[in-house]
Design a protein around this nucleic acid. Structure first.
Length: 414
RNA sequence: GUGGGUGUAGCUCAGUGGCAGAGCGCUGGACUGUGGCUCCAGGUGCCGGGGGUUCAAAUCCCCUCACCCACCCCA
C-alpha cells in the first residue's frame, strides 16, 4: 500500500477507462461542431464573486460547496463549480457581446464542488456544456434541447426523457416567487427545516423539495404556467412546438426548478428511467450577461455530467491494431529498433521490450500488451533478409522480405 | 451537512481472543526460436493508523483516517 493516496473526492481516470472517455468526447465535440459551436477554454480559477453574483450566494453550490481560497496577494479565488459563469465572463471580457449575432460556444473540462463523495460523484468532476448567446427566440431553446436529444441518440442511451418547465421572464419569475412565498407562509410550520429557510432565500426551490411532507403541500400549490404573461406563455408554447416536431421525448413538470439563480423562462433536465439523478440539465438565462456587466443579451445552454453519462454508454473497447516487435538475441536489437523507427514514421504503431531476449518471453509480453501482430526477427531472419509477422489471434505467420517491408505490411493491413 | 456499511496478500475475500489463510493474479520451471492451455515450484502482509483491555488482539473497547452506499444538493 503506497504512502500517497488520492485527496478525498478526487479520482484518477486510468488508461483502461480513458478510451471510453475519448470515444464519448469525440462524439460530443463532433455534434457540437455540426450545430455550429466553437470551443472556449476559460481557466479553472475565477474570482469568487463571479460565482456569487451568477449562481447566487444563497445557492447550495456557492454557500456550501465552493472550493475557495485566498491567493498570495489576498485575492478571493474560487475553483469553478460550473461552466456558465466563466463562459459568460469571457464572452463579456473579450467584447464578443458588442457584435450583434448569435454566438455558439462549448466547453469541456473539470469542475469542483466540495460534496460528500458517492457513486459516480467526485469533488473534481467533468462537464461538457454549450452556451448559445444572443438569441431570444424559443427555437433556440428548442435547438439546444434537440442537440442534447441528438447526443443521447448517438450515444445509444436507452430510455431517456426530458423534463421541461418554464420559470417565466424576470417579471413573471418574481411575481410567481411572491405568490409561492405567500402560499407557503400559511403552511410554514408543516414544511421541513430546509424549506422554512428557502421561503426567505429562494421560495421556488420549495416546489422541488423531495421531502414527502412538503410534497403534499406542493401538489396543491399555484402553477406558474397559469400565471405567465402573454410573451412567456407564447415562448413556452413555441418551444414545445419545436421539440414536439423533433420527436423529443419529454414531460412538462411544473415543479421543476433549477438550483442556480440565473435561469429564466425555459428549464429542462435529461433523465434516464430508474435513475434519480439528471445526467444533463440547462435552461435559458436572459438576465445573466447584463447582470455580470455585459450588454442586455439573452442566452440558453446546458451542461452534461460526464461521470453520469459514462456508465450509460456501451463501449466495446479500443481497437487493437498495433504491432509488437520481438528481437531474438541481443545482437539484432539495434536492427529491430531501426525497423520500429521506420514503421512509426510511416504511421504504424509499434512497441517492444528491450529487456526480453528469448522468443518465448517476447510472445508472452506481446500477448500482455494486447498487440494484434507480432513481428519476429532473429539471426536467421537477418541472414535471409526477411522477417516474420505473426497474427496474435489466429497464430498464422507469414514471411516478409526486409526491403520494402513497410509497403508489404500496409498491404497486409488492407 | 446527516445516516448506514467496510478496511486482512497485487485483486476478490475467509478468518469473531490462541502459529496469518484461500482463490485468482504475479515470478520461475517443465518448454534456451513460438504466447494464450496444462502441470510443478515460489514470495506474498505494519490484518488502514494510534491508543487501551488481556498471559495472549486481525478478533474486544476508545479515538482517528480512508473508501463505499444512501440522503441532501447538483450535472
Amino acid at each position: 500500500m503506497g504512502k500517497y493516496t488520492k485527496v478525498r473526492g478526487m479520482h484518477d481516470i486510468l488508461p483502461e477507462e480513458i478510451s471510453k472517455w475519448q470515444f464519448i468526447e469525440k462524439i460530443l465535440t463532433e455534434i457540437a461542431c455540426l450545430y455550429g459551436y466553437k470551443e472556449i477554454r476559460p481557466p479553472l480559477v475565477e474570482s469568487r464573486t463571479l460565482f456569487e453574483r451568477s449562481i447566487g450566494s444563497e445557492s447550495d453550490i456557492v454557500s456550501k460547496e465552493i472550493y475557495a481560497f485566498k491567493d498570495r496577494k489576498g485575492r478571493d479565488i474560487a475553483l469553478r463549480p460550473e461552466g456558465t459563469a466563466s463562459v459568460v465572463r469571457a464572452f463579456i471580457e473579450s467584447n464578443m457581446g458588442t457584435e450583434k449575432r448569435i454566438f455558439r460556444l462549448y466547453y469541456y473540462g473539470p469542475m469542483f464542488r466540495y460534496d460528500r463523495p458517492q457513486k459516480d460523484r467526485y469533488r473534481q468532476f467533468y462537464q461538457f456544456g454549450v452556451e448559445l448567446l444572443g438569441g431570444k427566440h424559443p427555437f433556440f431553446d428548442g435547438e439546444v434541447v434537440v442537440m442534447l436529444h441528438t447526443i443521447a441518440k448517438k450515444l445509444k442511451i436507452e430510455n431517456y426523457y426530458f423534463l421541461v418547465n418554464t420559470l417565466g421572464c424576470l417579471q413573471c419569475k418574481t411575481k410567481f416567487s411572491n405568490i409561492i412565498k405567500s402560499y407557503f407562509s400559511e403552511k410554514l410550520t408543516h414544511l421541513c427545516n430546509d424549506c422554512q429557510q428557502r421561503i426567505i432565500s429562494s421560495p421556488l426551490r420549495i416546489l422541488d423539495c423531495k421531502n414527502p411532507q412538503c410534497k403534499q403541500y406542493v401538489s396543491d400549490a399555484p402553477v406558474i404556467v397559469d400565471l405567465l404573461c402573454y410573451d412567456c406563455q407564447n415562448h413556452f408554447k413555441r418551444f414545445e412546438e419545436y421539440i414536439n416536431a423533433h420527436s423529443v421525448p419529454y414531460k412538462v413538470d411544473s415543479h421543476l426548478v433549477r438550483g442556480l439563480d440565473y435561469y429564466t423562462k425555459t428549464v429542462f433536465e435529461l433523465y434516464v428511467d430508474q435513475d434519480e439523478n439528471a445526467i444533463a440539465a440547462g435552461g435559458r438565462y436572459d438576465t445573466l450577461v447584463k447582470q455580470l456587466g455585459g450588454h442586455d443579451i439573452p442566452a440558453v445552454g446546458f451542461a452534461i455530467g460526464m461521470e453520469r453519462l459514462i456508465p450509460l454508454v456501451k463501449y466495446e473497447g479500443p481497437e487493437k491494431n498495433f504491432f509488437y516487435l520481438a528481437c531474438i538475441g541481443e545482437e539484432v536489437k539495434l536492427k529491430g529498433a531501426m525497423i520500429i523507427n521506420e514503421m512509426r514514421s510511416k504511421g504504424l504503431a509499434v512497441e517492444t521490450d528491450y529487456e526480453q531476449t528469448s522468443l518465448r518471453s517476447h510472445l508472452k509480453t506481446a500477448n500482455k500488451t494486447g498487440a494484434r501482430w507480432c513481428i519476429i526477427i532473429g539471426e536467421e531472419e537477418i541472414k535471409k533478409k526477411e522477417f516474420i509477422v505473426r497474427d496474435m489471434i489466429s497464430g498464422e505467420q507469414i514471411t516478409i522480405p526486409l526491403d520494402n517491408h513497410i509497403n508489404k505490411i500496409q498491404e497486409l493491413l488492407q
